[in-house]
Amino acid sequence: MVHEIIMPALGMTQDTGVIVKWCKQAGDLIATSDIIAEVETDKTTMEIEAGYDGVVAFLKAEIGIPVPVGEMIALLATTHEEAVKFAQGPAPARASEADVAASCEVLASPRGAQSELPSPLRTPATGPALQTELQPARILASPKARRLARKRGINLQTLVAQGIRQPFHVSDLDAIPSTVIEPLAVIDELQMQVTTEIFDGFHARIITQTEARPTVGWFMAALVAGAFRKATGGDWQSKVGLHLKSFDVGGDDMVMQNPDLSGLRGIREMDPETPVELVLIDLSTSRLTEYRPGQRHAVPTLIMNRTPDRRFFKFALYYPVDHLSRVVAVQLLNNLVERVEDPFIQIL
């Protein structure tokens, strides 16, 4: 008994899908809920479950080549013997491939050469498909292991490279010697400067008008979150977690979520485990002139300070390049200085 796995319709208007990754190979044992492949459509990338228990006889679809919805992408057999038989013998797949080729031939130019067919079957992968191919497969780890890895600056890819069985647990992290821990990513650095005058005027006015008495850091956090949201696509639904720190004793140190949307009075301290997209370090309340986060900093970190004459804010953004693209990083700083120069932008 064999089962065909077909290209599923993952969207209403989808005609084809692209296999971006095979999770199983011919000859592999597979269970119903196992993921056999990752498929990309114009909207999303999804994992495809086998749907049957069995052995993979062969994989038909090629990575990166669009396959019409409903077309077979792989064949599952019940036993290894059966798998071998169908992998070698005249599999139904070959027949259907021939059929498709034949029907394409009718539609194609009279020359009929397969290599010149305008069929979508032979369209090389472009754009998004290639990008997805470059992304590493999802790594499985317990929530605690993932959290600790981030904290300790351990790239889980290191564990993958060592062949440690997934999902990773805390014991796997504890087992790796510290010498193996690599920096997470190349850290890039961008700097910008902007006048403080309008911002300070605004902040002074807010203080007289609300009981909340937001610090400069809170006000800046709201602007930074707004700038970050805009730079990363402007989605109002997505959550922007931000950790505001100052190096002053008793100064700001709290995790907030969506400070750009909540209003300054609505800013609440969140659980320290709340995922954070950005760290904002406020040096302006101290006499520190510079701070560089360590090489293992996984989260983009924005340092704010004032020039000695206090007329300018200086911003330095440190970010791992695999975490934030340079385009987004520059956009973030651009948006931020715009907002510092005119906080009304934030309100609008």
């Binding site: 317990s142 929530p143 605690k144 292991a145 959290r147 647990h169 805390v170 485990e273």
Partner: peptide, 13 residues
């Protein structure tokens, strides 16, 4: 369910 809601980031299994 309550455990996964309130101690998610502490779970190793």
């Amino acid at each position: 369910s309550r455990i996964t809601e309130k101690a998610f980031y502490y779970l190793d299994a």
